[in-house]
Design a protein around this nucleic acid. Structure first.
Lengths: 95, 95
DNA sequence: TAAGTATTTAACTATCAACTTAACTACACG
DNA sequence: CGTGTAGTTAAGTTGATAGTTAAATACTTA
């Protein structure tokens, strides 16, 4: 791994190394969801979720589209979906 | 993923989400190395490397053995080796 | 045992990350 | 228009993280 790759990968990992962000990525593995739909599955404020989504948007991991007054979110990078799959297989009992 | 798995995985990812720690893991992919040998490959102080190694030891990712006055380090968890391989394949041009 | 090498630890400073609250924007619909 | 709902943003507080320096430990060898 060259230096820039190490740095970029560290940034990417940092942006997913938080329980709330990991859980959001799990939820988005199969389908696009609005902020409110994500929120229903988690125990924190909407502001907090919005901030965590923003961290991942800034990293290019999550893309959003607005429809009416809902914002629908999806995983923007297929490699992150693959990475999540691998991590589930390696670190979870039932993936 | 259940809640405890999400939390543990977040801790694990956090402990590798730093350029220095990622680079150390790269170096240790194939062989065990002393702190000094690791240091030669990197641009930071020995104290700093020791601190980063300690973060990964506390997480159970790295195991160390002492021989004479060298401390040899290796990746203690085969799953982390697998994870590194996957990340290289996904995010590096030449893995 | 004294001096040298390898590594760790402690103390400190600076920077960053997370959460809360409240204010704000955007859109829908009566 | 005004009200309600969805989501974002800003400000402030608190706690965590990173790096530097210096001191301490552990071992080796003369």
């Amino acid at each position: 791994m060259i230096e820039s790759e190490v740095n970029n990968l560290a940034l990417l990992l940092k942006s997913i190394s938080h329980p709330i962000r990991l859980q959001i990525l799990c939820l988005l593995q199969t389908s696009e969801l609005s902020v409110g739909e994500i929120r229903k599955e988690m125990q924190t404020s909407g502001a907090n979720i919005s901030q965590h989504l923003n961290i991942m948007r800034n990293q290019g991991i999550i893309a959003s589209r607005k429809e009416a007054n809902f914002v629908y979110n999806r995983i923007a990078d297929q490699r992150v979906i693959e990475l999540m799959k691998t991590m589930k297989q390696l670190f979870c009992s039932i993936s």
